[in-house]
């Protein structure tokens, strides 16, 4: 696949992400689309480490490392400061993990979106607090092992649907994206950049370390998440207009689950139950997008 995007890299080699890190791939693609006139706010997350210890930085753009809960608030402030300086050209973005988005930073994010602050919030989602040692978050999917949902105590609660929560705010633009679909990802970032107001992009970023996944399968598993409808690719404009970007051929979830150590305890019955939940979510999405679901 050759991308019709600038060859310029805004990331340096030598970062300290784990081998096969999906979040590092996500950052590479996003920065290619954003370009150098970007200020990035990183609340506590894997990327607080990946970006390098002081005095190093792996990113070629200005970055502010911030406290866990402040992703939305700091971005609002930086945007206001840029406006005061008369700089409307620079894009202000927040780059947060799922913990800093779904849980700890949710209040600040919700506030910023409610105020329709002019910034883009990226959540790279690796489905747990990976950096601190794989603790469950409200983004951890049903069925997953984490260090705080060990053994038979695996998570029996559903993953929070963050995009729908933000759509409920009537956010200007919200989209899901995957590292396995770089063309779609870059298109969505470019589109978000061209809009004004609060924008949110949810990027599925696989984590070989936390998911018990061979590092070389990182992109493959992200692609399977889309193909099985576990992580559908879609976008919502003005909180109303849904567009589903890819309609997969209906692969079953089994293979996706079987490849990952974090799901190895699941029985066939559990997987059947998960398949039902995935189908239910997909049909709900189809209804929102104005398509008639095949079942029901």
């Amino acid at each position: 696949m050759q991308l019709d995007s600038p060859d310029r890299e805004y990331m340096c080699p030598g970062h300290v992400g784990c081998p096969g890190c999906g979040a590092a791939i996500a950052m590479r693609f996003v920065l290619k689309a954003l370009g150098e006139k970007t200020i990035m706010i990183i609340p506590a997350c894997c990327w607080s480490i990946i970006a390098g210890p002081y005095p190093q930085s792996t990113l070629k753009i200005p970055v502010l490392h911030m406290a866990f809960e402040t992703g939305g608030a700091v971005a609002s402030g930086v945007r206001a400061a840029q406006d005061v300086k008369g700089d409307s050209e620079t894009t202000v973005v927040t780059w947060a993990g799922d913990g800093g988005t779904f849980d700890i930073g949710f209040q600040a994010l919700s506030g910023a979106v409610e105020r329709n602050e002019n910034f883009i919030y990226f959540c790279y989602d690796n489905e747990a607090y990976m950096n601190t040692g794989v603790q469950r978050s409200s983004s951890t999917p049903y069925g997953a092992w984490t260090t705080t949902t060990p053994g038979q105590q695996w998570k029996r609660l559903r993953k929070k649907n963050i995009v729908e929560a933000l759509v409920a705010h009537r956010i200007t633009y919200a989209a899901t994206a995957s590292i396995a679909y770089p063309e779609d990802l870059i298109r969505k970032v470019t589109k978000a950049k061209s809009l004004t107001g609060a924008r949110f992009i949810h990027i599925f970023s696989s984590c070989p370390t936390g998911w018990g996944l061979p590092s070389e399968m990182s992109v493959k598993i992200a692609r399977m998440a889309v193909q099985t409808n576990i992580f559908p690719l879609y976008e919502v404009e003005e909180g109303l207009r849904y567009t589903i970007n890819l309609t997969p051929k209906g692969y079953l979830v089994n293979e996706y689950f079987r490849l990952q150590g974090r799901f190895k305890h699941l029985s066939e019955t559990d997987l059947t139950h998960i398949q039902e939940m995935v189908d239910e979510d997909w049909n709900l999405l189809l209804r929102k997008a104005g398509s008639v679901p095949e079942i029901f």
């Binding site: 340096c12 080699p13 030598g14 970062h15 300290v16 390098g52 002081y54 005095p55 190093q56 930085s57 792996t58 070629k60 970055v63």
Partner: peptide
């Protein structure tokens, strides 16, 4: 504090 080096020194 402001970083002034890249990570290229880390031969990962």
């Amino acid at each position: 504090p402001c970083s002034y080096l890249t990570t290229e020194g880390n031969k990962t």
